[in-house]
Design a protein around this nucleic acid. Structure first.
Length: 714
DNA sequence: GTGCGACGATTTTAG
DNA sequence: ATCGTCGCAC
């Protein structure tokens, strides 16, 4: 047997993890760029090919669909064969699969639907209204957070402690009401997928034992991001006959705010016999970049401890650019990229990272100005677009007419003369008779308990859905989508809308048909149902043409797991990064620091950091100090850039540029100055130094850039 | 049912 | 600044 492909190019630690035959669990603490995915995929290949573990006995869990797909295809590459019967997927995907298989034991209806967070939000809002609670006082967002948090902690409404607190009691009653509604209309939210399976396996011993016996090897990726319920879920498969490999990096835990708890530490306490393997050799970055990352993360108190090293080059220093405002920063970033391209490199080798999405705008404008193609990550994804969700709602209603969420979404989209009054009447009836809106609709028609006009509209709606259901029973999936798009009137609705937006909407609808054409499912024979579940569980990419050569703009969070030869960290300012809301608490500041660590370790060759003295935020001018994280980098790794001029004094020692400029020219922002020709004005901004020092002055009738030596302070 | 102006909030985000 | 939501007028 040729094991070369599996063992090739592995260092000792990696090889140890891949080939381990110890009985105990293995915790792989994998630093950034240390070949974590390589270890996971080769381990699976090793298990199958060498240890003769059947593919069906392997359970591999990831957080994102992308990671799951990548893992599967890399294993298949190594083995030169498809591994269809191996369970690789996201926590939610695997749970969904189990619930489909055991829906009856889990007390679910066969045609239950998965609800995404947008559906959940809408449902909560409708619930609040029906309970007569004011949205101002009971913010739907907070309630959504409350419910999900309780589910993540494994708590049903009756188990949530209320401490006789009226506010908490109300929250619990909303939670209770929400849960009852979900059961009634046959929908399951994301957190519920996990909780349901936990309860299912806990309740049904035979089922639990079946899976415990089946899964001999359990592998978990990004273990540091797991939350309470995921931890509990993983442990339900534990038995005498299987073991775990958990891969993660405590230094890259950046989702504490999303519920990730310190599960690496907890695991090592709960299962102290676990073998720990550290991957500390980095294959990605230059020594300089790694030293900076190590220096920054060393400031965190709570860590397991780890020191990345590389045998690679020293590389170039980390360049710091102090911009006087956000526009200047953006322009400079474009300059960096231009230079990079002039040197014969590609656009998609550059990543521009920022803390919050709002920062992308100015950068985008600069890239448009500089005529550089870019792509912004994040934003609305394919299956989250309104027109797509509308179409899917019709399809959901065909599958399950009692799905009130879907019903509410499209009852009057496109408009068909069913107004607020009619809808409110249906809601009331549904509530008092404890039936779904669809059933209420039928009942109203039967009893003719509304005006003729409303009845007529409702009748038309009911026969529309019924006809669609009847026709679609005979059709292929793609034909169903096409039929729904046209017969619902959605196509016509968007067609008569004018403008660029409407055209993209129609294109998206076409795209949905295409997606349906190529959709297959190994998990389910009911293709329509699987398609709908897939839409919720895999919302799709934000934008198409992924493989084109664009500069990559994204938040630090979405950069995790990626790598780029050139990285620019923008907005390195206290208050922005670390974010204002994280400054007070040590725990939160440490998470920001880990985020910085993640950002730095994305860079392979060149790393830039930029900050702006003045930044327009929420329409106001804000003054920020350079980020404390810059000061945490040893000065000898830095080089400060100032408009064509290199300043030898590193920023960690320098005054901030405003003070520096003021000391040199005796001019401050806001100072009143006099110019021979233009008269008196106010200093808005400054740039440069020495003979090149310039100020921007606003006079009564104009604003001008002037050499600092030509104005005098009055 | 649509259009318009006021008002408020605005970190990060996968499934 | 800007985006989403809400109430109101037509």
């Amino acid at each position: 047997m040729d094991l070369t492909p599996i063992l090739n190019h592995l260092n000792d630690d990696q090889r140890k993890a891949v080939t381990s035959e110890v009985d105990s669990d293995i915790m792989v603490i994998a630093g950034a760029g240390s070949g974590k995915t390589r270890v996971l995929t080769r381990r699976i290949a090793w298990l199958i090919q060498v240890m003769q573990v059947p593919a069906t006995a392997i359970l591999a869990v990831t957080f994102t669909n992308k990671a799951a797909h990548e893992m599967r295809s890399r294993v298949e590459e190594l083995l030169h064969m498809p591994v269809r019967n191996m369970w690789i997927g996201t926590f939610h995907g695997l749970c969904h699969r189990m619930l489909r298989l055991h829906y009856a034991d889990a007390d679910l209806v066969e045609n239950f639907q998965v609800m995404d967070s947008d559906d959940q939000y809408r449902l909560i809002r409708r619930l609040l209204k029906s309970m007569g609670l004011d949205e101002g006082q009971w913010s739907p967002k907070e309630i959504q957070w409350f419910i999900n948090k309780k589910k993540d902690d494994g708590l049903r409404p009756d188990k949530v402690p209320h401490y006789d607190n009226l506010h908490t009691k109300t929250l619990i009653s909303i939670y209770q009401n929400y849960q009852t509604t979900c059961e009634k209309i046959g929908v399951v939210d994301f957190a519920e997928l996990l909780l349901r399976v936990c309860e299912l396996l806990q309740k049904h011993e035979a089922l639990r034992q079946h899976y415990q016996r089946r899964f001999k090897k359990i592998l978990v990726d990004e273990f540091q991001d797991t939350n309470q319920i995921q931890y509990r879920w993983l442990n339900l498969f534990r038995s005498e006959t299987n073991d775990y490999m958990l891969v993660g990096d405590d230094d890259q835990s950046i989702y504490g705010w999303r519920g990730a708890s310190r599960n690496i530490e907890r695991y090592l306490e709960d299962y102290p016999q676990t073998e720990i393997i550290r991957l500390e050799q980095n294959y990605r970055s230059t020594t300089t970049i790694l030293q900076a990352a190590n220096a920054i993360i060393a400031n965190n108190q709570s860590r397991l401890g780890k020191q990345l090293w590389t045998s690679g080059h020293h590389g170039e220093p980390i360049r710091i650019y102090a911009a006087y405002n956000d526009l200047d920063e953006a322009k400079y970033v474009a300059t960096i990229v231009k230079k990079w391209l002039q040197d014969g490199n590609r656009r998609d080798e550059c990543a521009i990272l920022y803390r919050s999405n709002a920062q992308s705008r100015v950068l985008e404008e600069a890239f448009i100005q500089a005529n550089i193609a870019y792509r912004v990550y994040g934003g609305l994804r394919f299956y989250e677009r309104a027109e797509i969700k509308d179409t899917l709602a019709y399809m959901r209603l065909i599958v399950n007419p009692n799905d009130d969420s879907a019903f509410e979404r499209i009852i009057n989209t496109p408009t068909r003369g069913i107004g607020h009054a009619t809808l409110e009447h249906l809601r009331q009836l549904a509530k008092t008779a404890d039936i779904s809106l669809w059933q209420a609709c039928l009942q109203v028609i039967e009893t003719k308990s509304l005006s003729a006009r409303a009845l007529n509209a409702l009748e038309r709606f009911v026969s529309l859905i019924s006809d669609m259901a009847q026709t679609c029973a005979e059709l292929e999936l793609a034909e169903i989508v096409e039929h729904v798009i046209h017969h619902s009137g959605l196509h016509f609705h968007y067609q008569k809308e004018k403008g660029e937006k409407a055209r993209t909407r129609l294109e998206n609808l076409d795209e949905l048909v295409t997606a349906a054409k190529t959709f297959t499912s190994e998990e389910s024979s009911n293709l329509l149902q699987a398609f709908l579940a897939n839409a919720a569980l895999e919302a799709g990419e934000g934008q198409a043409d992924e493989h084109t050569d664009y500069v990559q703009l994204m938040t630090l969070h979405s950069a995790k797991g990626l790598e780029f030869p050139l990285v620019v960290l923008t907005g390195m300012e206290d208050g922005l990064f670390p974010h204002q809301m994280c400054l007070d608490e040590l725990k939160q500041l440490e998470e920001e620091r880990r985020l910085c660590y993640v950002g730095i370790t994305r860079a392979k060759q060149q790393l830039f950091m930029t900050y702006a003295e003045i930044r327009r935020q929420h329409g106001r001018e804000m003054y920020h100090k350079p980020s404390r994280f810059i000061r945490e980098i040893p000065a000898e790794l830095l080089e400060e850039i100032r408009l064509q001029t290199k300043i030898s004094r590193p920023v960690s020692l320098a005054m901030n540029t405003r003070d520096y400029f003021a000391a040199e020219t005796a001019i401050n922002i806001g100072a009143h100055v006099l110019h021979q020709k233009f008269g008196e004005g106010i200093v808005m901004a400054f740039e440069g130094q020495g003979d090149n020092a310039r100020v921007q002055v606003r006079f009564s009738d104009q604003t001008r850039w002037l050499l600092a030596s030509f104005v005098e302070v009055v």
